[in-house]
Amino acid sequence: MDTIKSQQVTFKVFRFNEETDYLPYYNTYVLDVTHEEVVLDILNRIKWDHDGSLSYRRSCRHGICGVCAIKANGKGILACKTRLFDLIETFGSEITLEPLSVKRAIKDLIIDKKDFWDKHAAVQPYLVSDIEEHPASEHLVSPHDAEKLLEADYCIQCGACHYSCPALEINEQYFGPAAFAAAYRFSADVRDEASVERLHTVNEEAQGVWDCVKCMECAEVCPKEVNPIEKITKLHNMVFEAGIAKNNVATRHAVGFAHSIAKHGLLDEGELVRYSEGNIGVLKHVPVAIKMFTKGKIVLPWNMPKADKLDEIQKLIKSSSTVKF
């Protein structure tokens, strides 16, 4: 094995003991790492060779149990699956290892994941189905129906997306990407009978899908390629299809695009805000609107530009629309 490459890396490791420390601190270790080592190897080396008190979670070492998720330079990773050389390629040779959520740290890289599990549980992450106690045959799912899950069942509940989601960071009621991926996984299952109930849960203001800021962090970070934002979009669609969309600012904002495009081909920005907020709600936007108007940033209704070949767009909207509000 004369081809083993190695490189010196400076690791800054987050340390904190809820019971004894007032503030967290960082320990620095300079180690030679080889190209086949993953982050978990480094944590083990630090624990075994330097400081036995370093705490972190590990179990399967195969990217399956999800417990080893931490952050490296702010990026959510599975420690057991992430090669050091890949991290070096992105971040260079100074790597900071922190818990997924610094404010939830209990001991070093271990966090209290209660909020994650509570939200997960709230979407009924299991099949709800009335089945006979002694069924005569299996309840088969065709390959075609299994595809509808869009691999949402690959989620290992590691929490990397949950603790990378800015919407959740600010609004603690928000369920977050992993809970929504789970809600989709079971609601999209042909055997499930609680779909509408679940959709009501994810349709609530503040906790539900409408508070997503569409930053795509969850799609980027997921180590299992679950693509939670794709499932969030699906949940939006299912809410409309099930006919349970409430008439509120969030739903009107989505529907307003269709109205605007049908009329102009383009988005009428002012009208979208008015339609979404309603005639009273829109008033809170007036101060900013006035400033924008003085800077030539507001197009008055009679000057609204239109797309060429608007008739084509209108024809397609007629023939391709799949839902009603």
Partner: peptide, 16 residues
């Protein structure tokens, strides 16, 4: 060209 839907139209009507 029409509006792209700005990541919202697809929440309402993905196919459209």
């Amino acid at each position: 060209a029409s509006c792209c839907g700005a990541s919202h139209l697809q929440d309402y009507d993905d196919f459209l």
